[in-house]
Write a protein that binds this DNA or RNA. Sequence first.
DNA 1: TCAATCCGTATC
DNA 2: ATACGGATTGAC
Length: 661
Amino acid sequence: MAAESIEFPVARVSVDIPLPHLDRPFDYRVPAKFAETATAGCRVRIRFAGQLVDGFILDRVSQSTHQGKLLPLERVVSPEPILSPAIARLARAVADRYAGTMADVLRLAVPPRHARVEREAGQTPAEAWQSPAAAGSGLVVRLDVPAGWGRYLAGAAWLRALRERRPARAVWSALPGEDWPVRVAEAVAATAAGDRGSVVIVPDARDLDRLDAAVTAVLGSADHHVALSAALGPAERYRRFLAASRGSVRIVLGTRAAAFAPVRDLGLVAIWDDGDDLHAEPRAPYPHARAVLLARAELAGAAALVAGYARTAEGQQLVATGWAYDVVAPRATTRARAPRVVPVGDDAQLARDAAAASARLPTSAWAAAREALATGAPVLIQVPRRGYIPAVSCARCGEPARCQHCRGPLALSSATAPPACRWCARPAAAYTCPYCGARALRAAVIGARRTAEELARAFPGVPVRTSGRDGILATVPAAPALVITTPGAEPVAAGGYGAILLLDTWAMLTRADLRAAEEALRRWLAAAALAKPAREGGSVVVVCDGRLAAVQALLRFDPGWFAANELAQRRELGFPPAVRMATVTGPPTAVAGLLAEARLPECAELLGPVVVGQGSERMLVRVPRSAGKDLAVALRSAAGVRSARKAPDPVRIQIDPIDLV
DNA sequence: TCAATCCGTATC
DNA sequence: ATACGGATTGAC
């Protein structure tokens, strides 16, 4: 009964099971009928502990190290080698870094199969990718004269390094008014000129559209890249993923999940606006796109770009440790391109009387808007909260007004509607304050819609436009208009805004969040970057205490200075990225059990617990960065022991979560 | 003496 | 998780 002998009869399989203690490859016998189709990287079905489960073949080998008998592969789902060795290695590294399982990471990294798309013919063969110089016109010229990058110290040198296939790493602070999609596209083109591929990650669909257009323009063709986002349907998403996997494109632009896109001959990874919390994956093991890309740059020997108008403490850390170049413009260039920034008002006073229109919009803000409109330029008004009046409080004692039924916050949706609960939508027509008995309410927070209403009244005849989560404007023309926006939804104005008003800054700055100031500055810089330069009359009015470091950084348009401060502070306080931190969240006994089990590094410091809701608490574990790996390993194996023992309560482990208090 | 049940262990 | 084996328990 000599079985037909085949080459590499053993498949090493990554099995799709959620249990941490089973997070390792398992060997299976490759039956002769699958000798050709069971390729490394393909999806298979196997029998595992009696049940049929999915898996990926990591590798085909001639012998197993497993002592016992091997089960055969049950089925080859598809011979498509969808999980490349490079991405498998990356997924393993990300799982290790985040104390998670490879199966969890692979669910984020590889989109679900779409059989019809896979069968489609007409995938551009790899030959279509030649030197992009051959495909486009003007590309070579642009690369020889990197005027845009030439404005930055070390910018031109960095671009040259990409072309010469050197793994140069840069943390780039974009100038105000910078056309960042074009700069990024030039970096991608330079990498392509060195015959290598790129992965670029942006926070959202709007940024992706801009980048997509810029890459098409710079390469002179849309044939060499794909844009990957979760918004695509399953078929299109798989089609584009497959285009990268098969090597018919070597440039992938996308949102956070695309950080895992299987680009061949990777030469550059880039992330735009790495401080945006959309880059943090909300599903286990909660990897951050920046961390995924940087791990990838290390593994692939690729160049890296961490970019934004703002700079994160994490970005600064890369500069401080010498891992990356600091790519910034000379001060004179920045001064020449930045708008005039005027801080008005003091924070405490504004917080006391946030509802008063006069305090919200001081005289200088009105004046700046009026002047800008007179020159024919649009004015941008950034308001942190959307809606009409998203929070109300008792007019007498100031206690926030809450729903009688569910304790949710009350809000007004228009000037005439009665207050209603934002959670359960029940109206609260006859509100009585449970603390002082008063029956009157006042606005605690003013939303974008109400702001638009007020401004429309103040500037009759000037068009008022709004841009927010439900209806984002991409651009506005160079004409007088008031553009009310929530942070992150700012339209780009042709020719730049004449004035930008940053309102209700206290709402962002008073958040009990480690990153509140960094986040406020990030949002202000993103808006301020859209203004005309000061010499063309561009101004920014920030209604805030001018002594704050974040306002000082905005005044000088110096995100590097702020990030260096921020990093120094995190070092002092012992917070990431100066240290590695883990949170363990769950029922108290489960959290305690897991930490008792874990063989934490000697140097680990335990902080907490803090109660974080019904029957749930959270512990912090802090170690020096050098022990980060050990911490992740310890937590993961403790979770493994628990899962092996069938411990009932789920415990969530997060490494360097972004919402540390 | 045999079946039902519990616990622990391996899962290729 | 789930499946299996070996030990333990309980009833005839």
